[in-house]
């Protein structure tokens, strides 16, 4: 229990530190928010007034403190480009991206682990599995996206070609193809790592002990091979899920999905720093959340880690 509390505290500390680093980095970034708001024809007096109103004249740490206290109340300031609260922009897009990444992680881990176990326990199927996973890893995401769109969205018309939909189930339907495109190479990677882990664990001496005691093959497999392989597989799955957050940017633009990734890209291009700041932080939070869950479940699976905790 105290262990979980410790992990959560560590996660919160990471997020806090990241928020400071992001804030400092963006305060040094090129681009002038005052010019962005007032346009090129403003007078110097108008600029000075706006600067003061935005609090830009304060030292950076003071500005960070103001930003942080507001952020803790859910107020991330206003977008310079859209002229509306950042939280309002972020909320629905975060939801879209979370569904996309969650669905994609589910597909990647489920198919990857299933394929990996199959390849790991049936030596004869191993060449087939490594061929399939080899192709899966090698295909770039945008190629997969285009192929999926042309087959399932255009020719068969089973799925929409564009957009993220409205309402949870409509969103799921809209995001299925993008999630598959996003999951493809991760699934292949998870499959390869799972097959390797299962193969490694099956060769351990304690597995020979279990077999030598006359335990049925299925029991040996379940309790001594798969149980032990679960730890590396979990690690790979967690890291993969976290990397999908970054990968979602490409897929969102290929499928014209208005998610967190595309918002971030757009805001960086237009130097809309309040949005960049908040969106980066949200991505950090999602990442840290995944890693914390991973850490806690690893400890639950491995008694040797529990000791040290």
């Amino acid at each position: 229990m105290t262990f979980i509390a410790k992990k959560l505290a560590a996660g919160a500390a990471t997020v806090l530190a990241s928020s400071l680093i992001i804030f400092l980095a963006l305060s040094r970034a090129p681009g002038d928010p005052v010019a962005l708001i007032l346009g090129p024809h403003a007078t110097n007096a108008e600029r000075a007034a706006m600067s003061a109103r935005l609090g830009l004249t304060d030292p950076v740490l003071v500005r960070y403190w103001h930003w942080l206290t507001d952020a803790l109340h859910g107020d991330f300031g206003n977008s310079l480009l859209y002229r509306q609260p950042v939280s309002g922009l972020l909320g629905p897009r975060l939801m879209t991206t979370l569904i996309l990444v969650g669905l994609s992680a589910l597909i990647a881990v489920a198919t990857g682990v299933a394929l990996g176990i199959f390849g790991g326990v049936t030596p004869r199927a191993r060449p087939l599995v490594s061929a399939v996973t080899g192709v899966g890893t090698a295909l770039p995401g945008f190629v997969v996206s285009s192929a999926l769109i042309s087959i399932f969205a255009v020719n068969l018309a089973w799925f929409p070609t564009f957009g993220a939909g409205h309402g949870f189930f409509d969103q799921l339907w809209h995001l299925t193809l993008p999630a598959i495109a996003l999951a493809m190479s991760s699934a292949a990677y998870v499959a390869q790592m799972t097959a390797a882990a299962v193969n490694d664990e099956a060769g351990r001496e304690h597995v020979a002990t279990a077999t030598g005691r006359g335990l049925p093959r299925s029991v040996v497999l379940r309790r001594h091979v798969l149980r032990n392989a679960a730890i590396p597989v979990l690690t790979v799955s967690g890291l993969t899920a976290a990397s999908l957050v970054a990968g979602s940017v490409v897929v969102e633009s290929a499928f014209g999905i208005d998610g967190l990734g595309s918002l971030l890209v757009k805001s960086v291009a237009s130097k809309d720093y309040p949005v960049v700041n908040a969106a980066s932080l949200v991505i950090v939070i999602v990442f840290v959340a995944v890693m914390t869950v991973l850490d806690i479940s690893q400890t639950a699976l491995d008694p040797r880690l529990r000791e040290r905790a």
Partner: peptide, 16 residues
Amino acid sequence: VSMIYQDPRAHINPLR
């Protein structure tokens, strides 16, 4: 028949 192995550390599943 039962078997006793040389290295108990390697021959006993560390997770159980």
